[in-house]
C-alpha cells in the first residue's frame, strides 16, 4: 500500500482502525454532521486526535457542528491557498445565487430578529421572487444550471411551496455550509458586511483588524486545537 494514512493506521488493531475509517467516511461523505453517539472514534479523545490528523493530511480539519456533532471542512491555510489559486472557486453566477440565498434566508431574518443561532442554516426560504433579479441578468437556463450545481454540492436545499405565485423553486442554505470552519464562517460574514455596508464603522473595524491580521490567527488556532 502506498496510502496517505498507512503510518497512522498501521499501529492500530482491526477494531480501532475500523472505527477510525468509518468515522472518516462519515465526516467526509455524510451530507449532515456525524453524531458522537454513533461513532466511537469521535468519542475517544485519542482516536479523534488521530482522525483530525488524517483529515489534516488531506487538507481538511475537524469542524464542530453543535453539541456532540462533527463534520469536516478545509483547513484554513489550505483554503487560503486554494482560493489564491482560484481552485474550487464557484463561477460568478453560482456565487451570486448563493449569496442571494444567504442574504434573504439568513442575513435579513437575523437583522429582523427572526433567526437565532450562530450558523448559516435557516428556515426562511429564499423565494423565486428574490432570485428573479439573476434570471433577468443572465437568462433562466443559466440560472437553473447554477442552482442545480449548488443543489448537488449541498450548498442550497430545495424547499417546496414557499412561493406558489412564482414559477421556480425556493431555497434555504444547504448542509455544505456547515462544513465551513469558524474562521471561514466569520470571513463570510465579514465579506458580506464589507459588501453591504462598506462605509460603516463595522466595515472599518473589519478592515483594520484584517490589516493587523491578529484576531483571525488567534481564533483559528483556538478552534483547531
Amino acid at each position: 500500500m502506498s496510502g496517505l494514512f498507512d503510518d497512522l493506521l498501521q499501529p492500530l488493531g482491526d477494531k480501532q482502525r475500523d472505527a477510525l475509517v468509518s468515522a472518516w467516511a462519515a465526516l467526509e461523505y455524510g451530507s449532515e454532521p456525524a453524531s458522537e453517539a454513533a461513532l466511537p472514534a469521535l468519542r475517544d479523545a485519542a482516536l479523534r486526535h488521530l482522525l483530525d490528523q488524517m483529515l489534516q493530511r488531506t487538507g481538511r480539519t475537524l469542524v464542530r457542528a453543535g453539541a456532540y456533532l462533527w463534520t469536516s471542512g478545509y483547513r484554513d491555510d489550505i483554503a487560503a491557498v486554494l482560493a489564491a489559486n482560484g481552485w474550487g472557486i464557484l463561477p460568478p453566477l453560482e456565487r451570486a445565487a448563493l449569496i442571494l440565498v444567504l442574504i434573504h434566508s439568513v442575513a435579513i431574518p437575523r437583522a429582523e430578529g427572526r433567526l437565532a443561532g450562530d450558523d448559516w442554516q435557516s428556515t426562511h426560504p429564499t423565494t423565486p421572487t428574490h432570485l428573479r433579479k439573476l434570471s433577468q441578468v443572465r437568462g433562466q437556463r443559466r440560472l437553473s444550471d447554477a442552482l442545480q450545481w449548488l443543489r448537488a454540492a449541498g450548498l442550497v436545499r430545495l424547499v417546496r411551496g414557499a412561493d406558489s405565485e412564482m414559477a421556480g423553486a425556493s431555497y434555504v442554505p444547504g448542509p455544505a455550509l456547515r462544513r465551513l470552519t469558524p474562521a471561514a464562517r466569520k470571513r463570510l460574514q465579514e465579506n458580506l458586511i464589507l459588501a453591504v455596508g462598506p462605509d460603516t464603522a463595522l466595515a472599518t473595524a473589519i478592515t483594520v483588524r484584517r490589516r493587523l491580521g491578529r484576531p483571525e490567527v488567534t481564533t483559528s488556532q483556538r478552534s483547531g486545537s
Binding site: 493506521l9 498501521q10 499501529p11 492500530l12 488493531g13 482491526d14 482502525r17
Partner: peptide
C-alpha cells in the same frame, strides 16, 4: 485480508509491542 496486524494473521515479529499488548488485553 485484514489490514491490521493480528497475532495469528501476521508474522509475530512484524507486530508492534503495543499491538501485542492490545491483543492480550482484548
Amino acid at each position: 485480508a485484514s489490514a491490521a496486524p493480528n497475532l495469528l494473521a501476521q508474522p509475530l515479529n512484524e507486530i508492534s509491542e503495543r499491538r501485542i499488548f492490545e491483543a492480550i488485553a482484548a
